[in-house]
Write a protein that binds this DNA or RNA. Structure first.
Lengths: 160, 160
DNA sequence: GCGGAACTGTTATGTTATAACATGATCCAT
DNA sequence: ATGGATCATGTTATAACATAACAGTTCCGC
């Protein structure tokens, strides 16, 4: 969030990928292991700020000479989701690296651009509060929040 | 929203189904027609306040001796979505009747109970505002909003 | 080295959704 | 009333997304 992401997603990925990986390694300590294939899937997910589908990950693995089958990828993705290292975007059936720090409840909101396909992760406190209030008013106990706003991002609007 | 919906969803459905249908007829005037099969799919969707999947609708049609194929149902569902007569719940790949009045932008939020499977439709102004603000801060133009909170509803919490 | 736990491989299948093309119904303008 | 445009439906096939079930492997503590 502190670093601009261009419409083409061209920024220093090596930096954010490696920071994602070190966060991942840090989180994997007691009985939880970041194995080679989980690590590779995490890298692939982080290779852009765009959501990527499970079968696209399969294709990447195949292209690298590591042919895999769906369960392999889905198992890795589920592990990464459990560890809060990635998010699943419900509206796209796709996955994206989690940009948030470890202990913030893994709650996020997404702005998904139809044009450049970037997905910007937010964690807006006011929005979070409004979500909590809405649920509280109904006496509803929330386990999981999905907030995905689709449209056109600022850069693409300028470009148009 | 004015009428209580129990955890079992037992309330006067004939009333809400027929009011949904008359809303639908009213909306279908100029070049837009509520055909028999679209109408039947709308009725099926409205037969509970629970989200229903496309293939469950297919099964119902088959049980009624109106065997249909997936495109038939998806075409009806897409029509009903365009007319804002139903919503699609992205987290469930399922559909539910739209309880909102005609001209409010078809923006809604859902509280989805994992236990009784009811989905309560909200249109909370504060939440809507918070969503707008979050997008505006990023200069993002929103086309479509998906807000789905999953958890346990008040009734199921009491019952537990 | 043995047993258990975690991880991976493999086959098959389940679930959700659409492409592509053919046919039928409706309307209304000439 | 016919021709043709438009909208709706039927039909076949397949694409896209996801998991069940079971077999094999690796790793680690005892």
């Amino acid at each position: 969030m502190s670093e601009p992401i261009t419409p083409t997603g061209q920024h220093d990925h090596t930096r954010c990928v490696s920071s994602a990986l070190s966060a991942a390694e840090a989180r994997c300590i007691n009985g939880v292991t970041l194995t080679k294939s989980r690590r590779r899937v995490l890298e692939i997910v982080w290779e852009s700020h765009r959501p990527i589908g499970a079968y696209d990950i399969l294709d990447r693995l195949a292209a690298e000479g590591q042919p895999a089958k769906p369960p392999t990828v889905y198992r890795a993705l589920n592990f990464l989701l459990e560890q809060c290292l990635i998010h699943r975007l419900e509206t796209l059936n796709a996955f994206i690296g989690c940009g948030a720090s470890e202990a913030d409840g893994h709650t996020a909101q997404f702005l998904i651009c139809r044009d450049c396909n970037l997905a910007q992760e937010l964690d807006d406190p006011a929005l979070r509060q409004a979500l909590n209030d809405a649920a509280d008013q109904s006496g509803f106990h929330v386990d999981k929040r999905v907030v995905e706003l689709s449209g056109i991002c600022a850069d693409c609007r300028k470009a148009a």
